[in-house]
């Protein structure tokens, strides 16, 4: 079977981006895991058990607990953005899995609403970033780039869903083909090509930018350590014991 140059280019780019993403994230995780925590530094009051510390980390990951205490408006934007993003990603599993698991089937319609909410949340975060003098001062190109990237990914996605409507079977064929090494031609719809190009940029950018906060938060010692230094002796790996 013959493939067009376009198909070959996009297929290779997709594998390249996925490889950079997986390799980059794994490298980060390995570096974080390998770097020792010499001292007990949880921000207290903190749970006194490892289980409690795990719950604390999850409360940050799932509910953004500390951000809630800090600033309700930022929290609102952050939580809506991240949950919408997650639901949109889960909806997209339909392109990678066959048959689609029933739990993901149930998420399909909510995924569409999330897709509509996502760019609105991005605009909200952008507005907040550009209207408060303190966040204007700290924001840089990278902060705007990440927001813009996700905004345009969501925008091109919605364009396909509600306006452009390329042939979905071709798209699924291409993506599922990549996932199962059973290749088929890339759809030539320009909006689709823009959409996946942006996604590939996001994937490759992720491990080398502030977006590593996603795996990084699990390694934050102030959140993941149990507050039990008197009960359980913590040892600094690189400092010998006194006698």
């Amino acid at each position: 079977m013959e493939f067009s140059l376009l198909t070959i280019i996009f297929s290779l780019m997709a594998y390249g981006a996925a490889a950079v993403f997986v390799f980059g994230i794994l490298c980060r995780i390995m570096v974080y895991a390998k770097t020792p925590s010499p001292l007990k530094i949880p921000t207290t009051p903190a749970p006194t058990t490892s289980f409690g510390a795990g719950v604390r980390v999850l409360s940050e990951v799932l509910l953004f607990r500390s951000l809630y205490r800090s600033n309700k408006w930022t929290w609102l934007g952050g939580v809506v953005f991240h949950w919408a993003f997650l639901l949109v990603v889960l909806r997209h599993l339909r392109y990678f899995l066959y048959p689609l698991p029933s739990w993901d089937m149930k998420l399909q319609s909510i995924g569409i609403y999330a897709g509509i909410v996502l760019p609105i949340a991005v605009l909200y975060l952008l507005m907040r970033r550009t209207t408060v003098d303190r966040t204007v001062f700290i924001s840089s190109l990278a902060d705007y780039f990440a927001l813009a990237l996700i905004f345009f990914i969501a925008g091109t996605g919605l364009l396909m869903k509600f306006y452009e409507r390329p042939f979905m079977v071709d798209i699924k064929g291409f993506v599922y083909g990549l996932a199962t090494f059973n290749f088929s031609a890339v759809p030539t719809d320009p909006v689709f090509l823009a959409h996946i190009t942006l996604v590939m940029i996001l994937l490759a950018y992720f491990p080398y930018s502030k977006l590593v906060h996603a795996p990084g938060i699990f390694f934050s010692p102030t959140r993941n350590q149990a507050d039990n230094p008197r009960e359980k002796r913590h040892v600094t790996p690189w400092s010998p014991n006194l006698t």
Binding site: T35, P36, N71, V212, S220
Partner: peptide, 24 residues
């Protein structure tokens, strides 16, 4: 220090500049 302190290494990487700390 980046090799000795996980806190430093992780904290160098993961700030998203959300602004939560700016008025604290």
């Amino acid at each position: 220090l980046l090799k000795k302190y996980r806190s430093l290494k992780v904290f160098m990487d993961i700030c998203v500049k959300c602004g939560a700390c700016t008025d604290k």
